[in-house]
């Protein structure tokens, strides 16, 4: 079969509670939305997980 299969990966979006810092990384076990983790490199505010979603990575 020559149909393209889509491989998926999960992304975690981390945001800062006090500024617009916003970074996307690979999903890790134990991640959940609203989990507070670490401090913001920009202003030292608390970082939280704002979202977890599925990304589609096309491959042949």
């Amino acid at each position: 079969m020559s149909e393209q299969k889509n491989q998926t990966s999960t992304a975690t979006v981390v945001k800062c509670m006090s500024c617009d810092y916003n970074v996307e990384r690979e999903y890790r076990d134990g991640d959940y939305v609203m989990k507070v983790e670490g401090t913001c490199p920009k202003d030292g505010g608390k970082l939280y997980i704002a979202g977890i979603y599925m990304k589609e990575v096309r491959r042949k």
């Binding site: 992304a11 979006v13 979202g51 589609e56």
Partner: peptide
């Protein structure tokens, strides 16, 4: 019921 897709997350 499957993992949240980006299109849905983008609607939040």
């Amino acid at each position: 019921i499957i993992e949240m897709r980006k299109e849905i997350y983008d609607a939040v």
